[in-house]
């Protein structure tokens, strides 16, 4: 693949982490000429952060935050995807609708979503739904544009062949448009799941009573840098876990797709 064995690759990857942790550890605990390179107050120490993570999991309170964030992410992803698929199909099949709404879609997509957070909090309260709404506005546009493209870019030859086979509109939808749109949607699955999570965490950060974003915000409020770093590490691990789940789903659903050249 890239010329080295899996074990060697893993060893090198682990080495990068070890070096980074070592620099962090030395910088924050060993004084050089009387001063710390990475003062504890601003950077905490790797030992403290690990201890804090351990405490969070051992105490059990982390599971509540994780499940809240996961729920928000999943809901934002599902609602955003369903909306994106419906509108993507509608716009692609009805060029007039697409032309009429074009400037508004562009405008809505150009808007930085963070500014919507206060509005959603006013409308939907501090519970999970204001975070879900924020995630939906992010996921919707990704899925929408991909489905729109997927339906638009169906190979004209495949389409002509299917029509000559005698397919009616319903069959064309099922056997041609839908699989094509789905493949485009799945190619953006990692991005859209990631954005669902961003929406959830940013929403929590801006105002909530639970979730990983809340955890980090709370720690920041009392200058608890160890808590902020612990939250970040848990968040990163959580993202990797979700990304791994998405890859599993993707591999199952897109068996027909040729592997990209770099993986072959």
């Amino acid at each position: 693949m890239i010329g080295i064995s899996r074990t060697k690759l893993f060893a090198l990857q682990a080495l990068v982490a070890a070096v980074a942790l070592l620099i962090w550890h030395v910088g924050s605990t060993v004084p050089i000429g009387g001063t710390y390179l990475l003062p504890k107050f601003f950077f905490s120490t790797p030992g403290d952060v690990i201890a804090r993570i351990w405490k969070l999991f051992a105490g059990g309170q982390i599971w509540k935050h994780l499940s809240i964030t996961l729920t928000e992410t999943v809901l934002a992803f599902l609602i955003g995807s369903v909306g994106g698929v419906l509108f993507g199909f509608w716009f692609a099949r009805k060029p007039i609708v697409a032309a009429v709404f074009d400037p508004y879609v562009k405008m809505a997509n150009a808007l930085p979503r963070v500014v919507l957070a206060p509005i959603f909090m006013l409308w939907l309260g501090l519970g999970i739904w204001s975070k879900v709404a924020l995630g939906v506005t992010l996921v919707f546009f990704i899925v929408f544009f991909n489905v729109y493209q997927g339906v638009k870019e169906v190979s004209s030859v495949v389409l002509a062949n299917a029509r000559l086979m005698g397919m009616n509109e319903r069959q064309l939808f099922r056997h041609v448009y839908w699989p094509s749109a789905l493949s485009w949607m799945f190619s953006s699955l990692h991005t859209s799941v990631g954005f669902a999570l961003v929406g959830a965490v940013v929403g929590e950060y801006l105002g909530s009573a639970a979730g990983l974003g809340y955890l980090i915000h709370e720690a920041e409020g009392v200058f608890d840098v160890t808590g902020v770093f612990a939250g970040m590490v848990i968040l990163a691990a959580f993202v990797l876990f979700i990304d791994w789940l998405v890859t599993l789903i993707e591999n199952r659903l897109l068996v027909w797709r040729p592997q990209p050249a770099s993986h072959a």
Binding site: S155, A162, P179, S180, S183, R257
Partner: peptide, 11 residues
């Protein structure tokens, strides 16, 4: 109709 290009459904 047999097309010059690939007309099979890749999925």
């Amino acid at each position: 109709y047999l097309f010059q290009q690939d007309a099979l459904m890749p999925w």
